[in-house]
Amino acid sequence: MQRVNMIMAESPGLITICLLGYLLSAECTVFLDHENANKILNRPKRYNSGKLEEFVQGNLERECMEEKCSFEEAREVFENTERTTEFWKQYVDGDQCESNPCLNGGSCKDDINSYECWCPFGFEGKNCELDVTCNIKNGRCEQFCKNSADNKVVCSCTEGYRLAENQKSCEPAVPFPCGRVSVSQTSKLTRAETVFPDVDYVNSTEAETILDNITQSTQSFNDFTRVVGGEDAKPGQFPWQVVLNGKVDAFCGGSIVNEKWIVTAAHCVETGVKITVVAGEHNIEETEHTEQKRNVIRIIPHHNYNAAINKYNHDIALLELDEPLVLNSYVTPICIADKEYTNIFLKFGSGYVSGWGRVFHKGRSALVLQYLRVPLVDRATCLRSTKFTIYNNMFCAGFHEGGRDSCQGDSGGPHVTEVEGTSFLTGIISWGEECAMKGKYGIYTKVSRYVNWIKEKTKLT
């Protein structure tokens, strides 16, 4: 034993070699072989497995989906700052455009905790909710729209109204504003409101030439003092309507412009014939205590009207009353817009006519005020429907199939267009061939041609 100890002390290297040989010859039971080890760690190889990531292109799944990435790591994937920024906006807080917040056709661009709407022409605001041009839906104005110097929408209202708090709607500024039905039992019968379409306001006024200088022999019209197929109006439903009495009662109609003036057809009036105007009328054979009678003290036909040349060209006249009318729910003026808007309103496509005229061709006159909704007829169809001249200051309205029309005794009465609950004068009943005849239409004086003249002559002093 002493000898062994001496050998170990003198030859430590020998001992180490012996131990190493023993270990190498022993069977290893701690580690699995290569094949079995792979069965336990069965993990798919990654895209760049075996390579240094710093030297390969980034992978979106590896960089940002398996674990949260930084902007720089995302930049490695896209290799483009702009594309990385677009991805980053949604990656950080989701897609803010998912709810489609942009209105009126706006395009949404996502941002971090926010979004941006790219608005089409005519709109602005956070969600493109603000109209900035009158060309689109009248700028959301209830009545009139004008573009300011910086191309912003400025709404306005006709006389007797003021802008509401929203700067879009119009509200009454006087007790009985024009064009409004205020009798409670008839307010439910107000005709369907007309909503502004998209309009090209630059070209809204037709490029028409008034044929002022045409000389033409007097034409022989049949029954051209021209509501057939209409309905009984309720008291106060058309408070701007008046009836004219002269040699015979209810020979023509008219509309209240203001307390002192009536507008009617020029062919209705004769110099030297006494005319009485009755406002607030409903049943011409009954006294309903809503009527107001006034005498006409002055007749002003349009300066281009000449019955000797043509009885229905420039067929418009103004009547001055001896005493002002007292405005109330049964006696209310009709609204008159400017030339541009009167023309736009007419193009809405349908209007209402009213009167006490004959209820059928050569038949009896109506006792109760009649009204009828009539569609506008395109000019080409209008011209083809008659052998008589249709001037540019006239328009056609009615039904091709016949059966409904204005008729004798309705002449001078109103053709009105309702705009968001307020009625505007767009025409004056003038003439036609018979009444409600198939293929024939009622012919009306186009008020847009005469609004400046009306307003100039009827100013209240």
Rank of each mutant, 00 (worst) to 15 (best):
L60G: 02
G179D: 01
V368R: 15
C18P: 03
Y391W: 09
E320D: 00
V359S: 13
L369A: 14
S220D: 15
V174Q: 09
E434R: 06
V278L: 08
D212A: 06
Q241G: 07
I15R: 11
S255Q: 03
V153C: 04
P175G: 07
A337I: 01
A397K: 02
D405C: 08
V273G: 11
G398P: 04
V174G: 06
E259V: 07
G403M: 14
P375N: 13
S187M: 12
V228N: 07
D249V: 07
Y391M: 15
N452A: 12
K137Y: 08
I443A: 05
R3D: 10
V174F: 05
P101A: 05
W431L: 09
G179W: 00
I344M: 15
I297D: 04
G363D: 09
Y201I: 15
L327Y: 07
Y341M: 11
R140D: 09
Q237G: 09
L32R: 09
I40R: 08
A192F: 09
M437I: 13
Q185G: 13
F123T: 10
D212I: 10
R43T: 02
K109M: 10
P120A: 13
K362P: 08
S448Q: 05
V269Y: 04
C268A: 01
K446M: 06
K274L: 06
A9D: 07
V447Q: 00
S184N: 15
R379M: 15
N283A: 07
D95H: 14
C145Y: 02
Q143D: 00
S411Y: 15
V377C: 03
S385I: 10
G230A: 15
D131G: 12
V243D: 02
T381P: 05
G179F: 01
R449V: 15
E270F: 08
Q219G: 15
G122V: 03
T271V: 08
F31W: 10
H361N: 15
S365E: 15
M65Y: 11
V56Q: 06
V278R: 07
H289M: 15
G351Q: 03
W261H: 02
N113S: 07
P44A: 14
L383M: 09
K347Q: 14
T461W: 07
I256L: 04
S204L: 13
F31P: 03
Y201P: 10
L20T: 04
S187H: 08
V154I: 11
F395L: 01
G413C: 08
N5A: 14
S70F: 03
S365Y: 12
V248Y: 12
Q143I: 02
S114I: 07
C407A: 04
Y305N: 03
A37D: 01
I309V: 14
T209S: 12
A250N: 13
D232Q: 09
V263D: 00
N304Q: 14
A192K: 14
W240F: 03
C335H: 01
P235H: 07
E35Q: 13
